[in-house]
């Protein structure tokens, strides 16, 4: 039986297409929400950080991550977990993410976060 090897690079590439449901100009990767991706056989595990604890979009983001990754035929199971630690801060937003936020009308400064 032929096995297709999954690699994390492919996964990250797909995650670039998953946008913040409330800000469609920036991906969850550029927001710094993805803490870790691990691949084990056909199973993918994505560990994420909520931007704030009361974020109502977390379950939508989770579903969007799952359906984005299932596009790969080699992917069998996707598990998405939101971690309690470390804490997300705006320092995690990439330069590309900041540009995306700006397009949406949000200016971000990395120094205003406590």
């Amino acid at each position: 039986m032929a096995t297709v090897q999954l690699n994390t690079e492919e996964i990250y590439k797909l995650l670039e297409d998953v946008k913040d449901p409330e800000i469609d100009t920036v991906s969850i990767l550029d927001l710094g929400m993805v803490e870790d991706v691990t691949v084990s056989g056909q199973d993918v595990s994505v560990k994420m950080l909520p931007t704030f604890l009361g974020c109502p979009a977390l379950s939508i983001i989770q579903k969007n991550v799952e359906s984005a990754l299932r596009q790969l035929p080699a992917v069998k199971n996707v598990s998405v977990e939101f971690l309690r630690s470390p804490s997300w801060t705006s320092d995690r937003i990439t330069e590309k993410g900041k540009a995306g936020l700006k397009v949406f009308g949000i200016s971000s400064s990395s120094t205003n976060e406590k």
């Binding site: 704030f52 604890l53 630690s85 976060e113 406590k114």
Partner: peptide, 15 residues
């Protein structure tokens, strides 16, 4: 420990 972890994030928002 889980409560100590949550407290970190809560404090950031509480500021």
């Amino acid at each position: 420990e889980p409560l100590a972890e949550v407290a970190q994030k809560v404090q950031m928002e509480l500021y």
